[in-house]
Design a protein around this nucleic acid. Structure first.
Lengths: 221, 221
DNA sequence: GCTCCGGCGGTACTGAGTGCCGTGCCGATC
DNA sequence: GATCGGCACGGCACTCAGTACCGCCGGAGC
């Protein structure tokens, strides 16, 4: 029933556009009553994102399941769950992406979905950074950065019609965030003394390049 | 006319709630025709954010007006324009904040507004980082981080009923972002040789603390 | 066979948003 | 001074999303 409604809806959306398709059209094509549509989808927008609710629950469960020595890594892993959902059905994801790009109402709806993901990540980080000075600020900023990096890679993959390695692109993007915000802890070096790294930098050098040097020197490049 | 509609709308929204107020109620109180409401506000949500359109235009103009040696600083300054708009009328902003917090539809609308701000910032940074490897990624992430930091400070100020120094809070939050992403360039030292800074770091130290050390050493703390 | 119940459909309603047209008010023109 | 053209406003009628309510039916249990 749900699947039949989604299929009918997308067929009409692609044929004549989202706003030109009424709920009556959809239920007529699916051969069900109008009331049943709203039993399965709270609104017309929801039929475009039939799996986000489940994915959000998965992410929440993942974050609640446990902690990690490195909170940033944990939220990056949580973000990857979203990519997996998109990658499950590339053709569908690409069609939906084109739809949401040109329909303002769908874009707004997608933003509210993304916002809920971001709040889930920020909530986890806020708990981990509780007590730290500017802990909530740090949590919010990192959550926003993780979401932005994820979406940057995801959307460039969607724009390319699902060609290329989406996971690698997202990994690369998330690695940038981890580079910027740093890993709070790294595996201890057990087979040697506490070695040190010396960075020499000209005053006036781009700071982020210095950070890249640091990363390379610390063996995280 | 616009102001009369906004005043009537907020009076009713605060009295009986947003969803319990119809557009007919608003125009009846304001003493104007229903059709005129939609002439000034494309939707019922728009009457809650009567000045965002102007602010967005201001930000776009500010970003288009010129560049900066340090793009991150420029987008931080652009973000401050939004705070100024909120600070112009603290009482109104606090009321609106409470309204948007408890009405899902308004929250979704606000997200779409914030998204447009973020895209404006990201567009500026994308142009500045054009050609750099991962330039658009870096632009999107920084824009998201700036918006998140700004909103973190703004909302904590709104939660405190407009008490405290909003500008100082936002400055502090944005400074965190600049610390994480660094300044690409700093003023050249003219009255001395190209001096160098040496940082010694234990492998395993938190990277972001190392960045803070770097900043302090480079005289940007 | 009877009842209870959950999924489904139909009807009627509210309210947002739109298109169209009439009206009154204004300065400009002859 | 009468007329014309633009413009802002109001009113009416309509579409469509979303909701409340009720009636129908088929299966499970007694």
């Amino acid at each position: 029933m749900r699947d039949a409604l989604v299929a009918a809806a997308f067929r009409l959306f692609l044929e004549r556009g989202y706003e030109q398709t009424t709920v009556d059209d959809i239920v007529a094509l699916a051969g069900v009553g109008r009331r049943s549509f709203f039993r399965y989808f709270p609104s017309k927008e929801d039929v475009v994102f039939p799996d986000h609710e489940r994915c959000l629950a998965d992410m929440t469960a993942f974050l609640a399941a446990g902690t990690d020595d490195e909170p940033v890594r944990r939220v990056c892993d949580a973000a990857r769950l979203v990519l997996l959902m998109y990658a499950e059905n590339p053709a569908f994801s690409v069609q939906r992406y084109r739809l949401t790009r040109q329909v303002p109402g769908l874009r707004a709806y997608e933003l509210s979905v993304v916002w809920r993901y971001e709040r889930a990540l920020a909530g986890y980080l806020r708990a981990r950074y509780a007590g730290l000075r500017d802990g909530t600020l740090r949590a919010d900023v990192i959550a926003a950065a993780v979401v932005a990096a994820h979406n940057n890679a995801l959307r460039s993959w969607l724009r390319s019609d699902g060609q290329g390695d989406a996971e690698a692109a997202v990994d690369h993007a998330l690695e940038h965030v981890r580079a910027a915000f740093g890993a709070e802890t790294v595996p201890a070096v057990t087979d040697g003394p506490d070695d040190v790294v010396v960075i020499v930098s000209r005053r006036g050098a781009p700071l982020w390049r210095v950070v890249q040097e640091l990363e390379a020197a610390l063996g995280r490049g």
